[in-house]
Amino acid sequence: MAKVKGDIVVDINKCKGCELCAVACPQESLELSRKLNSKGYHYIVKIEDNCTGCTNCAMVCPDGIIKVYRKTEKKREQIATITNVTGDITVTVNS
């Protein structure tokens, strides 16, 4: 099965900490920072590495500052296993 991996980059100095993105995220990946940005707002940070790149957060962000990435990783097939002569290291080779 293809595995989907996503990520986001937030322009944190333009973030106003409205949290609408956090509420819209089905993965609950987002939260407000403890620190403040240059405008004095708590900004959005990722708290989990489970983003699927669904773009929901970017859809609702009023300030249009979320960039979303998505990559579909095809399942790798194992084509060889190599063990060294002493047998203490085994390397699997994927296609």
Partner: peptide, 11 residues
């Protein structure tokens, strides 16, 4: 994941 070809949403 954050490479140009993986961008699905941008300003």
């Amino acid at each position: 994941v954050c490479t140009k070809e993986n961008i699905v949403f941008d300003r």
